[in-house]
C-alpha cells in the first residue's frame, strides 16, 4: 500500500491529515496534537512546512497543480492562521545532564 508520508518521524500520512480535517479539526495546533505531525524527534524541522503548504494551497486555492482530489473542499481555516507553530527552546535535544550542570566557567 503506497503511503504519502507527511511526517517521517511519526509516520503520519497525508491521508491522515485530510481525515482529521474532514472530522473538523480545523486549526493548526489541534491538527498537530491530533495527528502527531511535527511532534516527533525532529520537532517538525523536516516536515511541518509540508503540512502548512498543503493547508495554504487548499485555503488559497493557489499553487495549482497538486491539489489533492481527496482533500476536503470547504476548509474553515483563515489563511492568516497558517503560520509557523509555536517553537519553544531548545532547538535541538539537550542532555538533562547539561542543563543540570548549568553554566561552567565565569558567570
Amino acid at each position: 500500500m503506497a503511503k504519502k508520508i507527511l511526517c517521517h518521524c511519526e509516520d503520519v500520512e497525508t491521508e491522515e491529515l485530510y481525515s482529521a480535517l474532514r472530522q473538523g479539526y480545523g486549526d493548526l495546533e489541534t491538527l498537530k496534537r491530533y495527528t502527531g505531525i511535527g511532534t516527533g524527534k525532529c520537532q517538525g524541522k523536516c516536515c511541518f512546512i509540508q503540512t502548512l503548504r498543503l493547508l495554504h494551497d487548499m485555503v488559497t486555492r493557489t499553487g495549482g497543480m497538486e491539489r489533492e482530489a481527496t482533500g476536503p473542499k470547504d476548509l474553515m481555516i483563515d489563511p492568516d492562521d497558517i503560520r509557523v507553530p509555536t517553537l519553544r527552546p531548545p532547538v535541538l535535544p539537550l542532555r538533562i545532564k547539561d542543563i543540570v550542570e548549568g553554566e561552567r566557567g565565569e558567570p
Partner: peptide
C-alpha cells in the same frame, strides 16, 4: 524538504 508523492520515504 522531500516533496509529497507515493512512498516518498
Amino acid at each position: 524538504i522531500i516533496p509529497l508523492f507515493d512512498d516518498n520515504d
